[in-house]
Amino acid sequence: MVRRFVAVVVLLGLVAGGVALRLGYDDWRTDRTQEGLQQELSLGTAPRPVVRKDVPVPVASRSAYKKPFAELRIPRFGEDWEWAVVEGTDAPALELGPGHYPGTPMPGEEGNAAIAAHRAGHGDPFIDFDLLRRGDPVEITQGDTTWVYRIVREPWMVAADAHHVLDPLPGRKLTLTTCWPKYGSSKRLIAVAELDDVRVDDRVSAAPVASP
């Protein structure tokens, strides 16, 4: 009887240890990947914003699938919270970091740009998603340009197939999506932000472009 109990305890320990190792490895791999993606964004080959005379706001350039195009900062999640955003929202893309929904507008563009990120796992980028409050800034930087969005609709829950949240919206909006509950994926949490300001850093514009 005692041996059976010990066997069950050892077995559960092996499973828990294995899962913990797997999660730790996923986080470590995402951290390493993010370092590489952020370096990639500092190279001369990184996408640069498009400025058009007939459009009042610069628009971020798109990158290839799984390639980074901008840095995302949400101070509510921490002063040093900063992630490179890649193009794509399928599993391989989101393993790298937050992903931009293909087919939705880019930051700065009119309509509803949309970004998804893991709530838990792969570095937990959106673990504190439910803490977002109206007025919180969401900053997206590409090259010398930073688009400052502000939350206009606090997180709310929808069904996993509530695809309508990606539909076009008036103005320049940004929709953020993640999973609910924290360690599951049966539903989604959504928050909407609106473009509030665009900052252009002249120091970055004037700096010589690093060679790749």
């Binding site: 996993a160 999973c179 609910w180 924290k182 360690y183 599951g184 994926s185």
Partner: peptide, 10 residues
């Protein structure tokens, strides 16, 4: 295109 991105570890 039927569901929003799967972002949980579920």
């Amino acid at each position: 295109g039927g569901t929003l991105a799967v972002t949980g570890m579920g």
